[in-house]
Design a protein around this nucleic acid. Structure first.
Length: 182
DNA sequence: GCAGTGATCATA
DNA sequence: ATGATCACTGCC
């Protein structure tokens, strides 16, 4: 059983991420994405939108095409950042989940004032430099537990931009905090 | 509605 | 070496 982390301001531990991606994606709603800026201060942004990429069997998941240089960190231990460039301009920020060897991750699509995965990274100054780093204070980018979000406040929809993935495009693996229920 | 943008990967 | 693809965004 997971310890109660809701009042902690510690980085979420690896055990939190070493679970199925859909479960982590749901539980990250309400969590804080924390970034240390150049002057040493930290900024916290409440995560409100995520997507789960489940592993090799999930045709929308990069890991389903086998391991490559780009996606190698997805195959590694949970709790590390997977950052890649999309459409030549947008950095996508993911946290690796699940067991080592299983290429699964959660995409952070919205946090704080930043709506959309490319805007999150642009707003926080996240780029390739974070790829493969642990989500930890030492990296300057980590996640902390926030106020728990009740299941009733959470909407699930298909993932965005994965129409190529056949039946996997329809699975409700995008998680959003419903603002109307807050 | 669609152009921009460039790393990545498969193919050769 | 070349060409297709792409977990998006901003402006039309």
């Amino acid at each position: 059983m997971m310890p109660d982390l809701s009042r902690s301001s510690q980085p979420l531990p690896r055990a939190f991420f070493a679970r199925p991606a859909d479960r982590v994606a749901r539980d990250l709603l309400g969590a804080r994405l924390v970034v240390r800026t150049t002057d040493g201060s930290v900024a916290r942004h409440v995560v409100f939108e995520t997507e789960a990429y489940l592993g090799a069997h999930d045709l929308a998941c990069h890991g389903s095409k086998g391991q490559t240089k780009r996606n190698a960190v997805m195959f590694g231990p949970a709790g590390h950042w997977y950052v890649y460039l999309c459409y030549g301009m947008h950095w996508m920020l993911n946290i690796v989940t699940g067991a080592e060897g299983v290429p699964a991750a959660v995409l952070i699509r919205g946090a704080g004032a930043f709506v959309g995965p490319g805007r999150v990274t642009r707003g926080l100054g996240i780029n390739k430099a974070f790829d493969g780093r642990a989500a930890a204070r030492s990296t300057g980018l980590w996640l902390e537990a926030g106020e728990p979000v009740g299941l009733r406040r959470i909407s699930r929809t298909p993932r965005i931009g994965v129409g190529y993935a056949g039946v996997w495009a329809e699975k409700p693996l995008r998680f959003v905090v419903d603002p109307a229920a807050l």
